[in-house]
Every structure is written in structure tokens, then in C-alpha cells.
Simulated scan of single mutants.
Amino acid sequence: MTTQQQVNQTQYQNKSEAYLNSKVHAQGIEFKKMQNLIQQHQFKQVLDLGCGGGHVTYQIAAFTEQVIAYDITPEMVNLVTMQSQQKGFDHVIGQVGAAEQLDFPAEHFDCVISRYSAHHWQNITQALHEIYRVLRVNGKVIMFDIIGNANPILDTFIQTIETIRDPSHVRNYNLSEWMAFVEQAGFKIEIIEKQSLALNFQSWVERMQTLEKGIHTIRYLQSKISDQVRSYYQIKEDGTFTSEAVYLVLSKI
């Protein structure tokens, strides 16, 4: 039986360079917010959970004593470790593993950051409980991810094209779902901020090496949707569209 974690590992093989060079992943106003939070609280031990191409690690490493770059895909971890060494960040350590089973002792980290990763997790409830376990009291969690929509019409569209593009996609959770998940895990919600994210269609599918038939299917769906969906996601003639993301800061008290 193939697990979701195995699907994730397979899907992200041979894609580390694409994510390293992705403008969407390398840029974002959220990075400055992360840096400011780390500096404000003088956090030393930070976990970059679902590190992918390592952009969070590169942005925060100068402000910490140690960063663990953690991902389920060995190729991603190796890339981040190598890039960090080239940038002079000798205090970055790579580790392979799943979000649902963090191989660290309780209260090990001052801060846990996860960006563009949670929509791939097999069990987000279990992962959040693990994050809570390894976070120190008064520590902070920063979550940043694409979100779904409470409107079924809008939500069905975005979940469908995400899955066609990337079979490892599990779900873009809407804000209500996020609130329920983090509160159930025991976190206090400190900051909730929504951001718009413009996604160039061509680079969006190329980054994931989406098959031609998948691209045609997505374009077909885009051509047949209602005006409501087209307007909400600002879908252009070339397929380019806008998604929503959420920036969450959580605390353990």
C-alpha cells in the first residue's frame, strides 16, 4: 500500500533545484516578519519544518544559533545543507523525517516555522500536536500556507487543480479549519494575516513537472468555470491566477 508520505517523497524527487530557484518560494513579505519575530524574542533553536528548497532557513540562519532543516524528501534536505554551507551557515543541520513524527525531545525548539508545507501533510492534527510537543513553553510557531475557501464552489475548484498539478497535494485548509486545528493542539493564536499570491501558470506547472494531459485538464477546467470562480481567483487568459495564503503566529503558554 502506498502511503501519502511515499507519494510526497516520489513527487518531490528531482525537483529540489526548481524549488531553490522558484521566485514564489524565494520571495515574500513574510520573511521579514519571521526575522523580526526571531530577533525580538532572541530565539536560538529553530526548526524549519518542511524546508523544501530552504528559503526559510537562508532567511533566518543569520539570526539564530542553530536551524534544523527538516523535510520528508532526502534530496531537499541535502540541497539545503549544501546551500547553507556555501552561504557560510555552518550551524544549519539537515534531517529527514515526516511532520507527523518529529524525532526530537520535548521542548527542544524556541521556534518552529513551516512555509508552504502543511498542505502536503498526511495528518495535520498529529503534526500540530508534534510541533506543540517539541516547542518550549513561551515558544512561537509560524505557519504560512495557501488556504482553501469556506465556499464549496470556490474550494472545490482550487483543491481540484492543485491535485491535478501535484498528486502529493492533500488539502489547502480554510481559515476556520486552521483555527480549529491549532486550538485543538493547544496553541494560542497571536496573529492571523491573509496575503494574496499571484501564480504564473507556466512556472507553476513546470516547477512540479505536471504532465501535459494534466495541464490540458486544468486549462479545460479554467475555461468552463463560472464567472464567480474566475473573478475570485483572477484567472487570466494564460491560466495565471491568484491564490490566498495565511500567515499565522501561534504561542505555547
Rank of each mutant, 00 (worst) to 15 (best):
I161N: 08
Y132P: 07
R230K: 13
K15R: 14
K194I: 10
K140L: 09
Q202F: 00
V229H: 03
Q209V: 02
I158Y: 00
K23M: 12
H119Y: 03
I164K: 06
D238F: 00
N138E: 15
R115F: 03
M143S: 07
Q27W: 07
M82C: 06
K44D: 12
E100W: 00
V112L: 08
L102K: 06
L154D: 12
K224M: 15
E177C: 06
P74L: 08
E65V: 00
R136T: 08
L250D: 06
A180F: 09
I146S: 09
K87W: 03
I215G: 06
Q45Y: 11
C51S: 11
F63D: 13
T2Q: 15
G88Q: 08
T163K: 14
A127G: 11
V170S: 07
K224A: 13
Q59S: 07
T73K: 05
I146L: 08
G28W: 11
H120I: 05
P105F: 02
C51E: 10
N172K: 13
G53T: 05
I68K: 08
L250I: 04
G214F: 13
V96W: 05
Q195E: 11
G97K: 06
Q195S: 06
K140W: 05
E107K: 13
Y220D: 15
H119M: 08
Y70E: 14
A118K: 01
Y233E: 14
V112C: 07
Q195Y: 10
V137R: 10
F89Q: 04
L248G: 00
L128F: 09
V77Y: 03
G54R: 03
R230G: 00
K87S: 06
I68S: 11
Q85C: 10
I93K: 13
L199M: 10
I161F: 04
H25A: 09
V92N: 01
Q6D: 11
F109A: 13
I68G: 08
Q101I: 10
M76D: 06
L49I: 06
A150Q: 14
T163Q: 12
Q6S: 09
